[in-house]
Each structure stands twice: as C-alpha cells, then as structure tokens.
C-alpha cells in the first residue's frame, strides 16, 4: 500500500498552519487512492495528534533533532519516503518548503511541481501558476514519486473526526544550519499566508499615512499589510510586504487595494484573491476591472471611514 507523505514545518516549536493545509490536500489524494497519509515533522516540535488527525493524517512522525538544516530535513524526508513507499510527497510552499521541494525530488530521482494551486487526485495532476501568475500549467510527474509544494490558502485541512498516532524517527544530519531566527512582522501575519490583506500603493501619498491602513488591519482579525512595488521602492515599506510578480504572491479571501493602480505585475501577485476591494480616486484605474467591489474616492478619507465601520462590527 502506497502512502502520501506530508512534510510539516514548525517555527519556535509550534506547527505552522500552512502545513495543515498540505495535510488536507494529502487527504484528498488518499480518499481517491485508498492510501494512508503520513505527516513528518523534520524537527522536534509540539504536535497535537488530534489536530493532525482531524486535518487528515493517519500517522505522524517526528524527527528527533532541534534546529533546522535544509540538507538534513531533505535527507530525512527522502529516507522516510523510501521506507514507507510514498508515492506522493507534499509540502507547504513557504520559503523553507520551496527550499526543500527540489532537494527531495533530487534525492528521490524524480520530478517536482512547485507552488501548486490545485490538484486532481484521480488523474494525479497538479496545476500551478507560471509567468508570475499570467498563465497556469497542469503537470504530471514522470517519476517514482510526485513531489509538490502547495501555495497557502488554496487547500484546507480535512476537518474530519479522527486521531493520529505520533511516533519518533531518527533525523539525518545536514550541511548548512540555521543559527538564528528573528521575528520581524510585529505580530501581524505574513502577507503571503494571511487570509485577509490590505495593501497600499503610491496613492497613499506618504509613509506616514500607513496608520490609516493599520487601523483597518487592526479591525479585521488576521489581516496582514501589503504594498505595491512603487511603495517599496520609495522606501515607505519593507520588501517583505511587496505583493506582485517580484514580491509575494497572495490569495487571501479578502484583498483591499488602496491607492494602487493595478499594474500587470501587481495583478499577477493578487489576482487569485477571492474578493478584491479597490479604493482609488481615478475611476479609470485598471484595478477596478479586477475588483469585486470598488469605491472611487480619496483613500485618505475612505480608509478612516472603513476602519470606523469595521470597528462597529467588533470582528
């Protein structure tokens, strides 16, 4: 019986939520093929067998090592994949996940598909954006194992009633190692992972006006801040917040674009968002062609009103 192996990522000893989405995706394949879902944490962390079982895992393995080495993690995954005859290996397409995907495929002498946004469990094909999101390709992996990373917010934990068992496994040694990790985002989620995002563009006028975006973000739980490249290039916001072809690709449930014109490179990074709200004083701005809802007006006046209206809801 073949298995589906999911690589679990942790930070500061806790599991990252993107990993639960990958477990849910593995469950979709398991339901069709009758395979089991194995989840493997490549370093010691706090694992809740109930949560992982509900997300879709049958068996949870945890490698006994502290600290992250990409080579070590990839080697542990490849060994476990062979030991358990995995036919599919799934990862979350985070920075670490993307780092591991190509390595695991190399170790297993197979192909890989990065940043997938959909999968067909019966045909075993993966769909992924290319050309910065301007096109999509559906691929089949011609190898003994299909290795794929999955973009945040496209898959969900299974939400079933089941428990998983947790077992310890030996970790492989690595070559490079992470020696420090410093939190940066001041408590807000990262724009690439958040389910709600508010982004500002050059139309915000000045870095000092970001308090208006922050007030809206504060009124929406789990809301991250994003920015256009014009804003990042002006030094108003850090590159880590840039959304677009040369920044981060996002697919939240709600994306609010304030003072952003909607250039092709910005759209490429956020076009997959479920609901897009545009606030722009130019009724002809291209962003309105892609927005679910638009307000024509000065963002510096609309945003405080929006923050006040949202605060009333006490979300």
């Amino acid at each position: 019986m073949s298995n589906i192996l999911v690589v679990l990522e942790s930070r500061d000893g806790s599991l990252r939520s993107a990993s639960l989405e990958a477990v849910g995706a593995a469950r979709l394949i398991a339901e069709v093929s009758g395979a089991s879902v194995l989840a493997l944490a490549t370093e010691t962390c706090e694992l809740d067998a109930g949560v992982l079982g509900a997300a879709g895992a049958d068996l949870v393995l945890m490698a006994k090592t502290s600290g992250h080495s990409a080579e070590g993690a990839a080697a542990t995954v490849a060994r476990v994949a062979k030991e358990h005859q995995a036919s599919v290996v799934l990862l979350a397409a985070t920075v670490r996940g993307r780092d591991l995907t190509g390595r695991i495929a190399a170790l297993l002498e197979t192909g890989f598909a990065a940043d997938c946004t959909a999968l067909d469990a019966a045909a075993m094909t993966f769909t992924r954006p290319i050309l910065g999101g301007k096109a999509f390709t559906t691929v089949k992996i011609n190898g003994p194992v299909a290795v794929a990373s999955l973009r945040a917010n496209f898959f969900a934990a299974a939400g079933r009633e089941a428990n998983a068992e947790v077992q310890e496994v030996v970790a492989e040694a690595g070559l490079s190692r992470v020696t420090a990790i410093n939190a940066q985002s001041g408590g807000r989620p990262d724009v690439s992972e958040a389910t709600r995002v508010i982004s500002g563009g050059r139309g915000m006028g000045d870095a000092a006006n970001w308090n208006l975006l922050e007030a809206v973000a504060d009124a929406i739980p789990g809301c991250a801040l994003g920015a256009s490249r014009a804003v990042v290039d002006s030094g108003w916001r850090p590159h880590s917040e840039q959304v677009g072809q040369t920044g981060k690709t996002v697919a939240p449930e709600l994306y609010i674009a304030a003072g952003i014109s909607g250039a092709i490179q910005h759209l490429a990074g956020m076009n997959c968002s479920k609901v897009i709200v545009a606030i722009n004083k130019d009724a002809d701005a291209p962003i309105f062609k892609h927005a679910t809802y638009g307000i024509v007006g000065d963002a510096l006046e609309v945003l405080p009103a929006l923050a006040a209206e949202l605060q009333k809801l006490n979300l």
Binding site: A105, T110, G111, F112, A113, A123, T125, P129, I130, G133, K134, A135, F136, T137, T138, V139, K140, I141, N142, G143, N271, C272, I276, A283, F288, H290, A291, T292, Y293, G294, I295, V296, G297, D298, E301, V302, P304, A305
Partner: peptide, 25 residues
Amino acid sequence: TAAVEVVAMNMPPARPAGRILGEGA
C-alpha cells in the same frame, strides 16, 4: 525524458465582473 510532463497550459480563469459601489466615504 522530462521529469515533469505538461498536460495543459491555460490563461487564468476570468474574474466575474465586479461593481463600483459609489464615491468616497
């Protein structure tokens, strides 16, 4: 032999038309 075979390549699905709700606050 390619390690990954392309089955299809498509343009992104078109977004349903949105609407302008109004002006200003």
